[in-house]
Design a binder for these strands. Structure first.
Lengths: 209, 209
DNA sequence: CCGGGTACTGTATATAAATACAGTTATGCG
DNA sequence: CGCATAACTGTATTTATATACAGTACCCGG
C-alpha cells in the first residue's frame, strides 16, 4: 500500500471517524460539507485515489459504499465495541461460526493488544496460576500462529483447550499453569493440532466471592 | 423497552450482521431481498416498529440511516458503555474525583453484578491466589458497605488497598490471597478505615505472556 | 516549458434509497 | 364479534447519492 498525502490521510481519517461516530460511512456530499469543498466531485476524486492506494474499497452504485481496507478496524469484531462470546465449540466446526455465538459483550476489542476477536469462556482451572480461573472470559486474538511461551487457544483432536505453548523442535507442548494438571505433548507430524488464537486479555464477571 | 417479536429480532439481527459483514447498515431493499419480501415496505414497517421499541434509531432522509440502540443482549441501561480508570489515588481525596481519572475504557458497566462504577489498576500481587494479578483492572462497585468474605477496595490510613474483608466483631481483617503477604487487622474504633467499594469483576489487558 | 500528479470547481444525470399511500391476511384479545 | 397488531403485497414519488464530463490552478521533475 502506497503512502497517503496529508490531505488524503485527512479524508481517510474523516471516513473512519464518521463510521465510529454515526455507525456508517459518509456520502460524497458529507465529505464535501465537512471539508468545505464546493463540488462533490472533490470528494469523489479523493475516494478514487484512496481506492487506488488500497486504503479503501468502493462498492459501485451503492449508497455509502465505502469500506476501510487498512488494519484500522473490522474483523469478526465490529467497531461498535462489542465482542462475540463463543460457547461450547462443537467438534470439527470452525470456532467463529454463528452457531457458537452465545451473545455479545460490550467490551472494546481495541482494549487489547493485539485486538481481540472474540471471548471464550474458560472451563476448568488448568491455568489457575496464570490468573485464569474457571468461568473467566478469555479475550482471544484470532491467529493460526503463535510464539513459544504465549498462552494460546489450541485445538487438539477436535477439542479446544487453553494452554501455554512451548515449541520443542518438531513437537509442541501445551503446558498448564497448575501442578495438578499434566502437560500435553504433541507430535505435529502425527497428531491433529491447530492454533485457533492467542490469549490477549481476560474479563471476569462472576465468582468474585 | 418492549420485547421484540421473533421476526423483529431476526430483522434486528440481520441489521447487526450486515453492519459487521459489510461495514454499513442495510437499505430497505437489502432487507427485502434477504427476507424474500416482495415489497420494500415490509422492511420499512419492521424498521418503524424496531424504532418504536427503541431497538434502533432511524435517521430520516438518509441512505442506510439505521443505528443500533440496544447493544443486542446486554442490559439496555442507557449508559454510554464506558468506565473510568482510576489511577494513583492521592491521600485524603475521594477516589472518584476527576483528578484521578486516567482514561475511560469502553467496557459495559452492566456486564458486572452489581454494576461496576469504575476500574482500578491493581498494584502488587497480594491477591494473586484469587486470580487478581499486578496490573489488572479491577471493576469496582461503589459502596461503603460490604459483607464478610467479599473482596473490597478499602482505605486504611489514607492508603487504598484491595483485600478480602473479614469481620471479627469490633475489628476487621483485610486478608491477602497470597501467603507471602500479611493480613491487616483493624480496630474500627481506633483506626481510620473506610470501604470504598466491592470488587465485581476484572479486566486484564497486559502481562498475558 | 512540458507533462504528470494533486487538488480542486461547476454542472449534469441516472439510479439507489427512503418513504408515503392503499390494501390484504392472519392471529390473539376482551 | 369487532378491533388492534403483526406481517406483509403493490405501486408510486421524491430525494439522496453516486458518478460522469469538462475545466482550472499549482507544484515538481526532467
Amino acid at each position: 500500500m502506497d503512502e497517503l498525502t496529508p490531505q488524503q490521510q485527512k479524508i481517510f481519517d474523516f471516513i473512519r471517524k464518521t463510521i465510529e461516530r454515526s455507525g456508517m460511512p459518509p456520502t460524497r456530499s458529507e465529505i464535501q460539507l465537512a471539508f468545505g469543498f464546493r463540488s462533490p466531485n472533490a470528494a469523489e476524486d479523493h475516494l478514487r485515489k484512496l481506492q487506488q492506494r488500497n486504503a479503501i474499497e468502493i462498492l459501485p452504485g451503492t449508497a455509502r459504499g465505502i469500506r476501510l481496507k487498512k488494519s484500522s478496524l473490522m474483523s469478526g469484531a465490529l467497531n461498535n465495541g462489542s465482542l462475540p462470546l463463543i460457547g461450547r465449540v462443537a467438534a470439527g466446526s470452525p470456532i467463529l461460526s454463528e452457531a457458537h455465538v452465545q451473545g455479545r459483550y460490550q467490551v472494546d476489542p481495541a482494549l487489547f493488544k493485539p485486538r481481540a476477536d472474540y471471548l471464550l469462556r474458560v472451563r476448568g482451572s488448568s491455568m489457575r496460576d496464570a490468573g485464569i480461573l474457571d468461568g473467566d472470559l478469555l479475550a482471544v486474538h484470532r491467529s493460526a500462529e503463535a510464539r513459544s511461551g504465549q498462552i494460546v487457544v489450541a485445538r487438539v483432536h477436535d477439542e479446544v483447550t487453553v494452554k501455554r505453548l512451548r515449541r520443542r523442535g518438531a513437537s509442541v507442548e501445551l503446558l498448564p499453569e497448575n501442578p495438578d494438571f499434566k502437560a500435553i505433548v504433541i507430535d505435529t507430524r502425527q497428531d491433529s493440532f491447530a492454533i485457533e488464537g492467542i490469549a490477549v486479555g481476560l474479563v471476569r464477571n462472576e465468582r468474585l466471592l
